[in-house]
Amino acid sequence: MSPMTLKPGSSAQSAYNLRSTLPESHERHTLSVLVDNEPGVLARVIGLFSGRGYNIESLTVAETDHASHLSRITIVTTGTPQVIDQIHAQLERMVPVHGVTDLTVLGAHIERELALVKVASTGEKRVEALRMADLMQARCVDVTLESFVFEIAQTSDQIDAFIELMRPLGLLEVARTGVAAVMRGKEPME
């Protein structure tokens, strides 16, 4: 990283991280944050996002290491590259945060979300709903004569698609967990 290779006067479009400050499109990033599972830690993270005006598309949290009381928070956020970098740095400097991984930057990773989708219909629509669920690899976890509850664990896009398919077939309500994500391959995130 030699500043000498930069064109003088390039600061408005600084070569550090090689991005333009010209109108930037928003990017969607998935961040994985390992935190101490202490009281208030989720409020701290959410407070950072609301206080500084960052977006949260989804956020999931649960303790993932019971022995050392560590929780993993997976956040899907959108913003300009500069804002994404800020979010990363702001999260990283929080005292209970052990590490922040920007999975979108790192590349190949798996994202999954779980949804429970309730569909109520009869006759032909009911048959069609069951057939679509089968095609989309959704599992029926509750059934009555007039309804199904499907469980689908997929990427957020595919869940969106499934919900759209169910809409004309008697969609009643949906509960979604938000995204959980890990890197591909044998390397851990931290």
Partner: peptide
């Protein structure tokens, strides 16, 4: 503080 870097002004050498 890493969060001060590039917050308001892009810099060339952080």
């Amino acid at each position: 503080d890493p969060s001060s870097i590039n917050k308001n002004i892009r810099v060339d050498v952080p």
